[in-house]
Design a protein around this nucleic acid. Structure first.
Lengths: 145, 145
DNA sequence: ACATAGTCTATCGGCCTAGTAGGCTTTTCC
DNA sequence: GGAAAAGCCTACTAGGCCGATAGACTATGT
């Protein structure tokens, strides 16, 4: 399940990418437009900024801007940041492998086998999709320009 | 993330499928072999029985048995039963669709678009895999016979 | 009758998610 | 220089769910 935080982040990023380039967008405006609790969104944008995805400007006329081109912003990376590894089971994760403590023979584990398939399929999709790709299928982001 | 409950269920089912046919396996034995808390496993097996996946026999010499052939036991169905819909977002679910309350234009939602892809890929894998398939990749289930 | 083994309901602690509060810092503009 | 605007940051909390446990009840075989 995608957390609300991750979902809000994706929506906010699309809105930011659709905004006139170079012009910061205020948290309050973004929150209203995307129907996200403002204070919660604040936290999310802060995380994105500390990750290097966003830039910010303080004071009057300030707000948030993308720090990279939408084509350079990867969805898989974002989802992992907010929701952790994609794999349904830690022993099937590529980026955050962890042994199952109750598992004897990991190499011969049927559950791991199928969950590795699921993780690979998910990763294939999310790691190959960028913010730019996602916007092409979003009416809100397109309509904003 | 796959819940422990679902994982335990899959492991228990593999063990049951690998046991001599017609001979019930006791909860306690299954729990010991698969390293699952016995009382917790009890709950899981009960659910599987009420779902029609398992059969049970009470009293001495009792225990659990598969109610169907492993080839007729579908992994997707099991995962959904324990962990709910496969889709990362309710509006992308096929079997348990639910509208997002904060979403205006669902058809033109970028998040939904990509998550539908993820859901389809996951469903394709899990719905086409049976207990029998999974066992082929499990050393424990094979070694038990 | 007694032991065995599944059935069922209730409960609990801990953690995580979603969200809130409030004070601090930086920047702009008059 | 000071007020207002806006982001920065830490702390906190309510609620829900997950993993697990307890214990009493029921059916079955010998």
């Amino acid at each position: 399940m995608l957390s609300r935080k991750a979902k809000y982040a994706l929506k906010a990023l699309m809105a930011l990418a659709a905004a006139p380039p170079g012009e910061p967008v205020r948290i309050a405006d973004l929150a209203r437009r995307e129907r996200i609790p403002a204070k919660f969104l604040e936290l999310i944008l802060l995380e994105l900024r500390n990750r290097g995805v966003l830039q910010s400007r303080k004071g009057k006329g300030g707000g948030y801007l993308l720090a990279k081109h939408p084509r350079k912003i990867n969805i898989g990376e974002l989802v992992r940041h907010f929701d952790g590894p994609l794999a349904p089971v830690p022993c099937a994760s590529q980026t955050a492998y962890a042994r199952c403590q109750d598992c004897r023979d990991e190499a011969g584990c049927g559950v791991r086998w199928i969950m590795k398939d699921v993780r690979d399929a998910t990763a294939k999709i999310l790691d190959r999709t960028t913010l730019s790709d996602m916007m092409k299928h979003d009416a809100g982001a397109g309509a904003l320009t």
